[in-house]
């Protein structure tokens, strides 16, 4: 369970990124966070695994007060939370398998860390993770030889190998074409349902968000303006979240989609 209690986040330059956030997310939920670019979606997600610090308030993840963690405890805490990025953030020169194996690094003894030699057990676990996202046959290819959708699935496998309770996804399909987007979203949905992993996702494509997520959180200028089941989202609510720029935003997304497609 993730709980935001009166959370505020102000950047050093004075921008208030998050204001009075109060949220509770139960284990196993599929939550989509929507809103304009710069509304604070990314900041919200990155506070959960302490990639960003919060300025005030309390953020509790499974009885752990996140803002009180320090050094090694932060890293140990992050082990339970997977993260997926818009630009995949893989080591493109390395093979698919070694990108997934990276998940096990913090558990390794020192000499294995520096030599980069992994145990057979870990290799099998990594291959299993690749199998779950359906790219087992690509295991020994270099990442830069794969398509965008396949790369995002490598990133997903890397996260699965971590065996997380929560997956945070920051615009996971923004660099993908519409068809691949759906394949990746199907993977997310399956992982969410079969493994009961919570998924919290920033997403630009509202239609896809409505189609896949159980719950929508709308953010405008650092504040939560909507929080509820997907079925309750109406055109009026979307207008509110996007501050009247709903049509413009939608057109921009469609243009981008047609460009990519």
């Amino acid at each position: 369970m993730i709980a935001f209690i009166e959370v505020n986040k102000t950047y050093p330059n004075g921008t208030a990124a998050l204001q009075n956030i109060n949220l509770t997310i139960e284990q196993g939920e599929f939550v989509a966070v929507i809103g304009l670019s710069g509304a604070g979606k990314s900041t919200l997600i990155r506070c959960i695994n302490r990639m960003h610090d919060i300025t005030s308030g309390k953020l509790i993840v499974d009885d752990v007060d996140v803002s009180k963690l320090k050094g090694a405890h932060i890293r140990k805490f992050r082990r339970r939370i997977g993260m997926i990025f818009q630009s995949f953030n893989l080591v493109t020169r390395a093979t698919v398998l070694s990108n997934v194996l990276v998940s096990f690094v913090p558990e390794l003894p020192m000499w294995r860390k520096w030599t980069g030699m992994f145990t057979k057990q870990h290799k099998i676990q990594a291959l299993e993770a690749l199998d779950k996202v359906g790219i087992l046959d690509k295991a020994f290819m270099r990442v830069d030889q794969l398509s965008g959708g396949q790369q995002q699935r490598v990133a997903l496998a890397r996260t699965l190998a971590q065996n997380p309770d929560i997956i945070l996804a920051d615009e996971p399909i923004a660099s993908l074409d519409p068809v691949t987007s759906r394949i990746v979203m199907d993977d997310f949905k399956r992982i969410n349902k079969e493994l009961n992993i919570s998924v919290i996702m920033n997403i630009h494509h509202v239609e896809i968000a409505l189609e896949y997520a159980d719950r929508i959180i709308g953010i405008r200028k650092g504040e939560v303006v909507f929080d509820g089941a997907t079925s309750k989202v109406t055109q009026a609510i979307l207008q509110d979240i996007y501050g009247g720029k709903w049509e413009a935003e939608q057109a921009a997304i469609e243009e981008q989609a047609s460009y990519v497609g």
Binding site: K120, K123, I124, L127, E128, D131, L136, D137, A139
Partner: peptide, 12 residues
């Protein structure tokens, strides 16, 4: 089984 087969296919 197919996973172990893939593992043994690793380039040496």
């Amino acid at each position: 089984n197919h996973i172990e087969k893939q593992l043994s296919a690793a380039p040496r």
